[in-house]
């Protein structure tokens, strides 16, 4: 009898501790930080005066990607000082997303709320801090009374601005990353379960042949997840850059 029983969500998301408090998600996060630092450690040790090769070339490509594709469109030339922060953010998120499609691991660390929430809070702290540093208390003043808006609309616009700047921004930043990765993870689990049930548990040749369909879909979704993992890291980083840039220069 064919029966597809989808496991409870906790079963595909929560992992047994490898040692107390250290589970797979924590392991992926630590590994992401380690791999990221290792790439840049090796790159920094190579001679920078010659034409870059191998890992150094890769690291410089990452730096230039962040500078040209994220900082330039979002903050302009004045935001170049934020390169290390945004670079770290991008690499960390990408390396946390990637295990979602890496065999054996098959778990994006960002599909748990903890890491996206932490990163969103860090970005929130940074852009509010930058706003306070560059504009003082005028940062909140600009929110309550945005320039270029008729005074009669202040009571309407002010609360919306405050809500959107201080609550919705970090919330949507965290939820966007988390929900994208969680949805991708659930999709992959669904199609692998379907394939497994049809091909290996099916008691009918028709089912076994039909099992190819979810398998093809699984491969397509895996390719799609590669794109989504990259895109979410990119979007998180560029939104962080946009928020920081808008705090530093309110006119933009």
């Amino acid at each position: 009898m064919l029966a597809l029983e989808f496991p409870p969500l906790n079963e595909i998301l929560r992992w047994r501790d490898l040692f107390p408090t250290f589970n797979k998600v924590a392991m992926i996060a630590v590994a992401a930080a380690l791999i990221g630092s290792l790439i840049f450690l090796i790159a920094a040790r190579q001679d920078g005066s010659k034409a870059p090769k191998g890992i150094r070339n890769f690291a410089e490509m990452l730096v230039e990607f962040v500078e040209n594709q994220i900082i330039m469109p979002a903050m302009g030339r004045s935001g170049m000082g934020w390169t290390p922060f945004l670079l770290t953010l991008f690499i960390f998120i990408y390396l946390c997303n990637l295990p979602g499609i890496v065999p054996v691991l098959y778990m994006p660390a960002t599909a748990r709320m903890a890491i996206p929430l932490f990163l969103a809070v860090v970005v929130w702290l940074v852009y509010v801090g930058v706003g306070l540093k560059h504009q003082g208390l005028g940062y909140f003043g600009h929110m309550i009374a945005p320039p270029g808006v008729p005074a009669a609309l202040y009571p309407l616009i002010g609360p919306i601005e405050i809500l959107s700047n201080l609550i919705i921004r970090p919330f949507s930043l965290a939820v966007r990353l988390f929900a994208n990765m969680l949805a991708g993870h659930i999709l992959l689990v669904t199609f692998s379960l379907l394939t497994e049930e049809l091909v290996f548990e099916g008691d009918n040749i028709v089912f076994r042949i039909l099992g190819v369909l979810p398998f093809v879909m699984l491969i397509l979704m895996t390719v799609f997840e590669v794109l989504v993992g990259f895109l979410q890291a990119y979007i998180f980083t560029i939104l962080a850059a946009v928020y920081i840039g808008s705090s530093a220069h309110p006119e933009h």
Partner: peptide, 24 residues
């Protein structure tokens, strides 16, 4: 095209967030 693509991703991200909130 480069500028349009960046802006497009931003717009898609903002719009997608609503669907994702629904998912959550």
């Amino acid at each position: 095209a480069g500028m349009v693509r960046t802006t497009m991703f931003l717009g898609v991200a903002f719009t997608e967030a609503i669907a994702l909130i629904g998912f959550v």
